[in-house]
Amino acid sequence: TTVKLGDIKVTFDNPEKAKKYAQKLAKIYQLTVHVHGDTIHVK
């Protein structure tokens, strides 16, 4: 599962960890989390 934020891409083996990371980023940057299959976009 890949978390994308602009040019930053972080890949996790564990989808749950990816989701938590995405939510953490979203909170920090006051953005929202969008899940598209294996990719989680923070924008």
Results as ranks from 00 to 15, higher is better:
1 T>P: 04
1 T>R: 06
1 T>E: 03
1 T>L: 08
1 T>F: 13
1 T>Y: 14
2 T>K: 06
2 T>D: 04
2 T>E: 04
2 T>W: 07
2 T>I: 13
3 V>F: 03
3 V>Q: 02
3 V>C: 13
4 K>M: 14
5 L>R: 04
5 L>G: 02
5 L>E: 01
5 L>S: 03
5 L>T: 03
5 L>I: 15
6 G>H: 08
6 G>C: 15
7 D>T: 14
7 D>V: 14
7 D>A: 14
7 D>G: 13
8 I>C: 15
8 I>A: 05
8 I>P: 01
8 I>G: 02
9 K>D: 06
9 K>C: 15
9 K>R: 13
9 K>P: 02
9 K>Y: 13
9 K>A: 11
9 K>N: 08
9 K>G: 05
9 K>M: 13
10 V>W: 15
10 V>T: 05
11 T>H: 13
11 T>D: 04
11 T>G: 04
11 T>P: 04
11 T>L: 12
12 F>N: 00
12 F>C: 08
12 F>P: 00
12 F>V: 01
12 F>W: 03
13 D>M: 12
13 D>N: 10
13 D>I: 10
14 N>M: 05
14 N>P: 02
14 N>I: 05
14 N>Q: 05
15 P>V: 10
15 P>W: 14
16 E>F: 10
16 E>I: 10
16 E>C: 14
16 E>H: 09
16 E>L: 10
16 E>G: 07
17 K>P: 03
17 K>S: 11
17 K>D: 14
17 K>M: 12
17 K>V: 10
17 K>L: 12
17 K>F: 09
17 K>Q: 12
18 A>V: 02
18 A>F: 03
18 A>C: 11
18 A>S: 01
18 A>P: 00
18 A>Q: 01
18 A>L: 04
19 K>V: 10
19 K>L: 15
19 K>G: 04
19 K>S: 07
19 K>C: 15
20 K>D: 07
20 K>F: 09
20 K>M: 11
20 K>T: 07
20 K>L: 11
21 Y>M: 04
21 Y>G: 00
21 Y>A: 03
21 Y>T: 01
22 A>L: 06
22 A>K: 02
22 A>T: 01
23 Q>D: 10
23 Q>R: 10
23 Q>N: 09
23 Q>C: 15
24 K>V: 10
24 K>E: 08
24 K>G: 05
24 K>D: 06
24 K>T: 09
25 L>G: 00
26 A>E: 03
26 A>W: 05
26 A>M: 05
26 A>T: 03
27 K>S: 09
27 K>R: 13
27 K>N: 08
28 I>P: 00
28 I>Y: 12
28 I>L: 13
28 I>C: 15
29 Y>Q: 01
29 Y>D: 00
29 Y>A: 02
29 Y>W: 08
30 Q>I: 06
30 Q>K: 12
31 L>I: 04
31 L>A: 07
32 T>A: 09
32 T>I: 11
32 T>H: 07
32 T>D: 06
32 T>W: 07
33 V>D: 00
33 V>T: 05
34 H>E: 14
35 V>T: 07
36 H>S: 12
36 H>I: 15
36 H>Q: 13
36 H>K: 10
36 H>Y: 12
37 G>R: 05
37 G>A: 06
37 G>M: 05
38 D>F: 08
38 D>Y: 07
38 D>L: 09
38 D>I: 08
39 T>C: 13
40 I>F: 07
40 I>R: 01
40 I>C: 03
41 H>W: 13
42 V>W: 04
42 V>H: 01
42 V>Y: 04
42 V>P: 01
43 K>N: 07
43 K>F: 15
43 K>S: 12
43 K>V: 14
